[in-house]
């Protein structure tokens, strides 16, 4: 598990509830779906978010190349590294750290273009997910256009590992219970989330 902050990319566009960062395709630190990330907005203010989508746009050339019978390695490398097509990482804002205090409220204003995106360390994941009573779930559950079940499963899997690392195996159970409480009046969503969590399998 990571212990030092890793720079992932820089912001392309943002709003209060989410932001999109760009990074290179070949970047070794490319975050995965559900990763908790943070963006320092200004001195003493950071936005925290969860990666909910990673996508790459195509263009005419890529489409044409894709039909080619054989692609030399230099062409693949050139396309991945030097063509102006960043991997776009979409992030939903789930909280903030203001003057050192973590909360699951939204930051007062969004990060701006080219702000640097960092992957949270295990300690930061633990700190963020144990602040309050899992209030940040509300941001995820409100975002109906997102694959909520898959996102929660991916996030909970990573957070579970971080908590288990520090000897707190109960976190996952509590988080699942909280999700059930929040969603028990919404049968379809709850079952979708729980099915996804079940697919995680026991650790």
């Amino acid at each position: 598990m990571n212990t030092t902050p890793i720079e992932i990319g820089r912001l392309l566009r943002s709003s209060l509830t989410g932001f999109v960062a760009g990074c290179r395709v070949d970047q070794p630190s490319l975050p995965v779906f559900g990763t908790l990330v943070r963006v320092p907005i200004e001195d003493q203010l950071e936005a925290f978010g969860l990666v909910y989508d990673i996508h790459m746009d195509d263009d005419g050339l890529v489409r044409q190349l894709a039909t080619s019978h054989s692609l030399p390695p230099e062409v693949i490398a050139d396309n991945r590294n030097n063509r102006n097509m960043p991997v776009e990482i979409s992030i939903i804002t789930v909280g903030r750290r203001k003057t050192g205090i973590l909360s699951h409220l939204l930051p007062g204003h969004p990060p701006v273009s080219l702000d640097v995106l960092y992957r949270c360390t295990s300690q930061e994941v633990r700190d963020f997910t144990t602040t309050g009573r899992l209030g940040y779930f509300r941001h995820i559950l409100r975002a109906e256009e997102l694959p909520v079940g898959e996102l929660l499963a991916a996030h909970l899997e990573q957070a579970r590992a971080a908590h288990r690392e520090s000897g707190d195996p109960a976190w996952f159970k509590n988080a699942t219970r909280e999700l059930i409480t929040l969603l028990r009046d919404d049968y379809p969503t709850l079952m979708s989330v729980l099915n996804a969590l079940s697919d995680l399998g026991p650790e």
Binding site: D26, P72, P73, E74, V75, I76, A77, D78, R80, N81, N82
Partner: peptide
């Protein structure tokens, strides 16, 4: 300008 090394996966230089 763009420079490619054929038969290599080293990235191009532009």
């Amino acid at each position: 300008t763009i420079s490619l090394q054929t038969d290599s996966d080293s990235p191009s230089t532009i």
